[in-house]
Deep mutational scan, measured.
Amino acid sequence: MEVRTIKVFTTVDNINLHTQVVDMSMTYGQQFGPTYLDGADVTKIKPHNSHEGKTFYVLPNDDTLRVEAFEYYHTTDPSFLGRYMSALNHTKKWKYPQVNGLTSIKWADNNCYLATALLTLQQIELKFNPPALQDAYYRARAGEAANFCALILAYCNKTVGELGDVRETMSYLFQHANLDSCKRVLNVVCKTCGQQQTTLKGVEAVMYMGTLSYEQFKKGVQIPCTCGKQATKYLVQQESPFVMMSAPPAQYELKHGTFTCASEYTGNYQCGHYKHITSKETLYCIDGALLTKSSEYKGPITDVFYKENSYTTTIK
């Protein structure tokens, strides 16, 4: 009895394709271990004539594949690729409408935090270190965002349907971005203890939790000093293409032309909904596939993004 075979390709990165001759009487799992086709788990399936010449994702289970996976995804987590594939199996079914010149995501599976993050990423200057993220990001900007969303979920250790947080998501993504040249110098002034300067680099240099107003941050924000008295913390120097200011959701007025974009969060910790506000020729609110415009805006804002380049204080 002759062994019926077909020729397929296996890959971990969709760049390096490895030619395989597979036995049609055995499952993919018996031949390769966990195997995925377009995100779908085909591990328990036997090869079919229609699979001839198709590319299958496999887990990096030998040295060659491990090197290829690390170079593309910059992670050695053995569960990463499987999590990416199972997320992709959902995100490829989502709709990605162009809204006001940006790629958004039609609401499904509690994905409003991903839509808000995706919209924000198209408006701030950011370059990702893992080629996987950078490639998928370019495709997302062009309207094909399924891979990018699935990668975000995998890097953030999230599953489809789980509630997510924009600030946490951005923080994970910033860790995989090139923020080497970003720098922030802060000064804390206390009447009792004097003053202390701190220099922050990388992710810490672009994120701040405690106030939404970048102007206020430049002037000074009140913080408790270690001595128990009130101290003032203010920005001395900022070198970065953008800054992200966050605070627990509270009524906040966004003035046209003073910011790049913002995240609105309605609801409580267990259950809520994100919308995205962007400042173009007027203010726009993007909620999944829905767009509304207004000249002014007041609502429960939790993150505001500002364009920056270089700032030095005039406070002496």
Rank of each mutant, 00 (worst) to 15 (best):
residue 2 E to N: 11
residue 3 V to M: 14
residue 4 R to D: 14
residue 5 T to Q: 12
residue 7 K to M: 13
residue 11 T to D: 02
residue 13 D to H: 01
residue 15 I to S: 09
residue 19 T to D: 12
residue 19 T to H: 12
residue 31 Q to H: 08
residue 31 Q to I: 15
residue 34 P to D: 07
residue 38 D to F: 10
residue 40 A to Y: 14
residue 40 A to R: 13
residue 47 P to R: 03
residue 48 H to C: 11
residue 52 E to M: 11
residue 54 K to A: 13
residue 58 V to C: 11
residue 66 R to M: 12
residue 69 A to M: 14
residue 70 F to D: 07
residue 71 E to Y: 07
residue 80 F to P: 02
residue 82 G to P: 13
residue 86 S to W: 15
residue 87 A to R: 02
residue 89 N to I: 07
residue 91 T to N: 04
residue 91 T to R: 02
residue 101 G to C: 05
residue 101 G to S: 07
residue 110 N to D: 04
residue 112 C to A: 02
residue 113 Y to D: 03
residue 123 Q to K: 04
residue 134 Q to F: 06
residue 136 A to M: 09
residue 140 A to G: 03
residue 144 E to Q: 09
residue 145 A to N: 04
residue 148 F to K: 04
residue 149 C to K: 02
residue 157 N to R: 11
residue 160 V to I: 08
residue 162 E to R: 04
residue 163 L to K: 15
residue 163 L to W: 08
residue 164 G to N: 02
residue 165 D to W: 01
residue 167 R to M: 00
residue 168 E to T: 11
residue 170 M to P: 03
residue 175 Q to M: 09
residue 176 H to G: 01
residue 178 N to A: 12
residue 180 D to C: 07
residue 185 V to S: 04
residue 186 L to D: 07
residue 194 G to R: 02
residue 195 Q to S: 13
residue 197 Q to M: 10
residue 203 V to I: 08
residue 207 M to I: 08
residue 208 Y to C: 10
residue 212 L to Y: 02
residue 213 S to T: 01
residue 213 S to Y: 01
residue 218 K to P: 01
residue 219 K to D: 09
residue 219 K to F: 07
residue 220 G to I: 02
residue 224 P to M: 13
residue 225 C to K: 01
residue 225 C to L: 01
residue 229 K to R: 12
residue 230 Q to G: 07
residue 231 A to R: 02
residue 235 L to T: 03
residue 236 V to I: 09
residue 236 V to W: 06
residue 237 Q to V: 12
residue 239 E to C: 12
residue 242 F to H: 01
residue 244 M to I: 05
residue 245 M to F: 15
residue 249 P to R: 00
residue 253 E to T: 10
residue 254 L to N: 04
residue 254 L to F: 01
residue 257 G to I: 02
residue 257 G to F: 02
residue 257 G to Y: 02
residue 262 A to T: 00
residue 266 T to V: 11
residue 266 T to F: 07
residue 268 N to F: 10
residue 269 Y to V: 14
residue 270 Q to K: 09
residue 271 C to W: 15
residue 271 C to V: 10
residue 276 H to C: 08
residue 280 K to F: 11
residue 284 Y to M: 11
residue 288 G to C: 03
residue 290 L to M: 14
residue 294 S to G: 11
residue 295 S to H: 12
residue 298 K to G: 08
residue 304 V to I: 13
residue 305 F to I: 14
residue 306 Y to E: 03
residue 311 Y to R: 08
residue 316 K to D: 15
